[in-house]
């Protein structure tokens, strides 16, 4: 059983394509454009890049700079450089409690997505990969929530599942009483003054509803590509189902695993909509909410503080993002 293969079987199309290209090896170093082509080329690169950098990267940089200032957002001349004061307030000062709980919530979300929807999605993919009759119908059922926004997921769950009097969750688990699913901020378990609150768990369930189908589709696509012959020979070798999965299927899914890890981490860091639509119940705030609340609106008394949160969020993401992206393109570069 060949494991640790860097060129996963899954990218058959690509490897075939690139080897075909290698055969006709005619690599260009730099295209020598002339006249009009040169202008067209510059526009092709320049316009999209300008927009992207202006919308994403320059503001990101400015956020980092603003995190070292105090500003109410009025006159630009009022921006006052305060050094690390915002970080002091956010990490060690009055807002430390909020920050810790928010980061913990982001962490719960991450762990939950890994151990809930990811495992379930992988399991479903495995089952649906078994040449079942009606597999497409099952797939559609699990996949449908994926096309909805998390905002509308929150809206629907609040109404149908978590209505305090009539919701289905209340009906199923409330024993005839009203249940405050989304308002109950008590911790299920706590670490000091922090913990995992009941209402946050309720929101996690709604998120799982959407995330599971997503993971399922990704794994299903990966599993389809595993050579049936490979699996057959594994079962002929006397591997039981678990061993086949563990030693044959799972290793070939490595690229999917990478994507799932990336998606899950990113999702856990940028979740915002569902909690915002539910009016940000106490103890469910994520870093994205602390950032936004301190930045926008009348309550935004200090853009510097919001930017400090934004910078924390950025630091949590960027290493991961760069690792993934450079890795991906390095691999690409090698193949072409």
């Amino acid at each position: 059983m060949s494991t640790g293969d860097d060129q996963p079987t899954i990218s058959t199309a690509e490897t075939v394509a690139s080897s075909a290209l290698d055969a006709g090896k005619a690599k260009k170093k730099r295209s020598q454009f002339t006249g009009n082509d040169r202008k067209v080329f510059l526009a092709m690169v320049g316009i999209p890049t300008f927009i992207h950098v202006a919308i994403v990267w320059i503001p990101t940089l400015l956020s980092i700079l603003l995190s070292f200032t105090k500003w109410r957002g009025n006159d630009i001349s009022e921006i006052e450089v305060t050094g690390v004061e915002n970080y002091d307030v956010v990490l060690l000062g009055a807002f430390q409690g909020d920050t810790i709980q928010a980061i913990l919530n982001n962490l719960w979300l991450l762990l939950f997505l890994f151990f809930g929807p990811t495992l379930l999605g992988m399991g479903l993919a495995y089952l649906l990969d078994k040449n079942l009759k009606g597999t497409r119908i099952y797939q559609s059922l699990f996949y449908t929530p994926v096309v909805l926004s998390l905002a509308v997921v929150g809206f629907i769950w609040q109404n149908i599942m978590y209505d305090q009097n009539y919701g289905l969750a209340t009906w199923a688990f409330g024993g005839g009483d009203r249940v405050d699913w989304l308002g109950n901020q008590e911790f299920i378990f706590s670490i000091g003054n922090y913990g995992l609150s009941k209402n946050f768990l309720a929101i996690l369930m709604a998120m799982a509803w959407r995330h599971t189908g997503y993971i399922m589709v990704l794994y299903l696509a990966g599993m389809k590509s595993v050579d049936a012959a490979l699996r057959e020979s594994a079962s002929l070798d006397g591997c039981n189902e678990w061993q086949t999965f563990r030693h044959v299927l799972f290793p070939t899914l490595k690229p999917i695993n990478v994507i799932v890890v990336v998606i899950t981490v990113i999702e856990a860091l940028r979740a915002y909509d569902i909690i915002a639509i539910l009016n940000e119940p106490r103890n469910t705030e994520l870093l994205s909410h602390l950032t936004t609340n301190a930045l926008i609106g009348e309550g935004a008394d200090n853009i510097g503080r919001g930017s400090a949160y934004a910078t924390l969020l950025f630091l949590l993401c960027i290493g991961f993002v760069l690792w993934y992206v450079t890795n991906h393109y390095k691999k690409q570069e090698n193949t072409v």
Binding site: A276, N279, E280, H289, T292, N293, I296, G297, E298, G299, A300
Partner: peptide, 16 residues
């Protein structure tokens, strides 16, 4: 409670 929930023309700001 974020800005977007404060739509009231009066008499109170927050979430009203």
């Amino acid at each position: 409670m974020t800005a977007e929930f404060q739509q009231s023309p009066s008499p109170s700001e927050v979430g009203f």
